[in-house]
Design a protein around this nucleic acid. Structure first.
Lengths: 209, 209, 209, 209
DNA sequence: CATGAATGAGCTTTCATTCAT
DNA sequence: CATGAATGAAAGCTCATTCAT
C-alpha cells in the first residue's frame, strides 16, 4: 500500500496514506523513521533490529515482513537519503539566478543538508560500501545525478582545465566541511556558521569565481 | 614507521625474531599491526579481539597481557597514527622553501599519508569520538600540533581574514579528498594522482596563493 | 508449592506438557527449578546461565527471554523462597493451640522448611546481600513478616526482657540448626531428627517456657 | 606464632626466618594474609589468585611455588582459622572458674572470634565442604577439638539427657548468632552487643543453668 | 625463588534471524 | 500482518593454571 513503493517510481514519502489509525498501516515508514533516529543517536553499529522495532512498538520479527534483513533496511535508508538530498538541492537550485549566486546557494544547501541530516549523511557518504553487504551500485546513480547538478553550476566558472575535476574538488571541500563538523572535529573556537560562510566563499574562489 | 617503542627500544617492525609461539616478545607490535589491518578491512565494530588474536596466531586472552581492553588497543593505534602523521609532515616540511612550495609540499604529504595509511586515517579522523569510549582528549593535542603546522604554512597567504579559518578550510578540503578517496566515492573516471595535483593547486588558490 | 504463578495460573510443577523443544511455555518454571537445583549443588557463583539452560534443554539465550539477567533470575528465586516459607509457616501456625504447642509447631515447621528446601534456604539466608547485586530491600519485608509471626508466638513466654530480643535469639538457634545441618557440619553421630526434637525443646526452655 | 609449617611438624616455612628484608622470605605468610583480607572484602568467589598476588606485590605464578592450587591456599587458610579459634578459646578458657562463668566466657569468646574474624569464620563454617575440592576430613578434627572443649564446659549443667546434644544445641545457637550477624541479617534495631549478652544468657538457660 | 608470556575454558550478554502459530 | 519462543554465533573479558627461563 503506497507508503514508499518497494522500489521505484512515483510517490515520495507516503502518497495516499490513509490508514494511520493506530497499529498496522504504514509500519514500513515508521520503521524507517525509527531506524534513522537510532542511526544518528547511537551510530550504525548500535542500530539494532530489536531497538528499532521496540521504538515503533512492534516485535523485531515484524521488521522482516517489510525488509529482507538489516542490510535491506539500511539500503532503504540510503535510498531515502539520496532522494532527500536530491529534493533539497532541487529546491534550492535557482537556475535563473546569476551563476555565482546559484553555485553559492547549492553549496549552502548541501552543507545545510549534511549538517541537519547527519543520519542520512552518515550512511550515504561515510559508510564504507565494502563494509555493508553490497549496496547495489546502480543505487549510486542518484548520487551521480546530484554531482551533475553541481557540475552544471560549476561549469561557468571553469575557463581552463577539466570542469569535472573542478566540481570534484568543490565536492571534496563540501564533504570535508560536513564530515568534520559531524564528527565534532572542527576546532571548537570556530563559529560553525561563520566558518561555513567563509569556507563557501573560499570554495568559490577555488573555482576562480 | 613511527613504531611506538614500548619495550624494545631498537628495531621497529619486528626485529629478527620471526617467532610465533612463545617468546615472541614483540607480540604487542604484531597485535597492533593486525588490529590496524582489521580496522580498515572491517571497521571499528568488527575489529574483534578474537580475530586480531587469531590473525597473529595467539589466543584472545594474550591480547589482554598487552592492552587493558579493546579501547586501550584502539587508543594505542590512534597514538601511533598521530605520531606517524606528525613524523610524515615533519619530514616533508621544508621550512626554508618558498611559502608556496612549502604549503604545497605539506598538502601533498598529508594526502599521501591519508591515502597510504587508511587504517590510521580512519581511526584518527573518521571515528566519532562519542562512539568510542572516551579517548583521552589530551591525546588530541598532537592532532592540534599538526594543524598548527599547517596554520604556520598558510599564514603568509592570508592577507585579510582569519588565518585560522583559512587553515581550517584547507584542512577540510584535504580531509574531503582523502576520505572520499578512501571510501571509493570518487568518480572512477578520475585519475587519482592527476586529481590530487589539481585539487592541491585549487586548494592553494583558495587561499589566494 | 508456592509456585509463583506468572503466566499459567493453574498447575504449579510442570502441568502435563512434558514438551522440551519449542512450545514449552512453562520454560520459566523449569528454568527456576533447574536454577534452584544448581544453586544447592554448586553454589551461587557456579550457578551459570549456560548450565541452567543446558539442564533444561534450551540455549542460554532462551533464559533472557524470561529473565533480564542472572540477578533477575536469582531474585525470582528468592521471591519464590520467601513466599514458600511464608506459606509453610502459615500452614502450620495453629493460632488456636496452646502457646507452647503453637511455638513448637512453628519451630519445627521452620526447621523442616530449611532442611527440605536447601536451595531456597541458602539464597534466602546464607547469601550475603552485599555480594549479590542489590536485592531490592523491600523484598525483605516478607522476611520480616515471618519473623513477626515468630515474635507473636514468642510473646506469651517473655515475662521480662525485650520480646524482640528473645525472638531473635530463638531465630538464631533455628538458623544455626538449619545451616549447620545443611552444611553437613553436625556431628555425624547425632540422629538428625532426635537432635531437632531436643534442640527445639531447649529452644523453648531458652525462652522460659 | 611460627608461621604455619607447610604441613606437619618441623621446619616452619622458612626455618630460620632471617631474611624478611624486603622481597622474598615469608612470602607464604604474606600471601595467606592477603588472601584472608581479600576473602572478607570480596568474598570467596572474588578471591582470585591474581589479586592476591598483586596485593602482595608478586606475580600470580609465584603463588604456585607455595600452594598447589587455589584450593590448597584456601585449605591453608582454614587450617589457620582452626588454629586461631583453638587459640582464642584456649586463651579465654578459665578452667578454674565456676562452671557458669567458664561456659559464659567460652561462648563470648566464640562469638567474639566469629564476629572479628569474618574471613576465617566464613571459610571455616560457611563454606560448603562439598563445594571445595575435598577438604581432607581429618583437618576437621581440630574443629572437633574445639567442640569438645565446649562439651567439657557444658557437662556440669546437663543433669539429664545427652550432653553431646546439649553442646550441639548451644553450638547451633552460637553459630546462628555469628552467621546472622556476619550476613547483616540481624534486625538493625538491635544493638549487637546487647543482643549478644542476652543471647548468651538465654543460651545458658537453655542448658538449665 | 620468581617472572613473563601464554593458554583454554568459561562466563554473561547481545544480536540477527527463523519458525510455528 | 504480526507475535512469542527460540536459536546459534559471536563478542568482550576473567580466571586458574602452566611452561620456559
Amino acid at each position: 500500500m503506497a507508503a514508499r513503493p518497494t522500489k521505484k517510481p512515483a510517490a515520495p514519502g507516503r502518497t495516499a496514506s490513509r490508514s494511520v489509525g493506530r497499529g498496522g498501516a504504514d509500519l514500513r515508514r515508521r520503521l524507517l523513521d525509527a531506524a534513522r533516529r537510532q542511526l544518528v543517536q547511537h551510530g550504525y553499529v548500535h542500530l539494532t533490529m530489536r531497538r528499532v522495532a521496540a521504538r515503533v512498538g512492534v516485535t523485531a520479527t515484524a521488521i522482516y515482513l517489510h525488509f529482507k534483513d538489516k542490510d535491506d533496511l539500511i539500503h532503504a535508508l540510503i535510498d531515502e537519503g539520496m532522494e532527500a538530498l536530491q529534493l533539497a538541492l532541487e529546491a534550492s537550485d535557482e537556475r535563473a539566478a546569476p551563476p555565482r549566486a546559484r553555485l553559492e546557494g547549492l553549496c549552502r544547501a548541501m552543507i545545510e543538508f549534511g549538517v541537519s541530516n547527519p543520519e542520512y549523511y552518515e550512511i550515504m557518504f561515510l559508510l564504507h560500501p565494502q563494509r555493508m553487504s553490497r549496496y547495489p551500485t546502480d543505487k549510486y546513480r542518484r548520487a551521480r545525478h546530484n554531482l551533475e547538478r553541481f557540475a552544471d553550476a560549476v561549469d561557468p566558472f571553469v575557463k581552463k582545465g577539466d570542469p569535472l575535476m573542478a566540481t570534484h574538488a568543490l565536492w571534496c571541500l563540501l564533504h570535508g566541511i560536513i564530515s568534520l563538523r559531524l564528527a565534532g572535529r572542527l576546532d571548537s573556537s570556530l563559529d560553525p556558521d561563520e566558518f561555513t560562510d567563509e569556507a563557501v566563499t573560499r570554495g568559490l574562489r577555488m573555482l576562480g569565481a
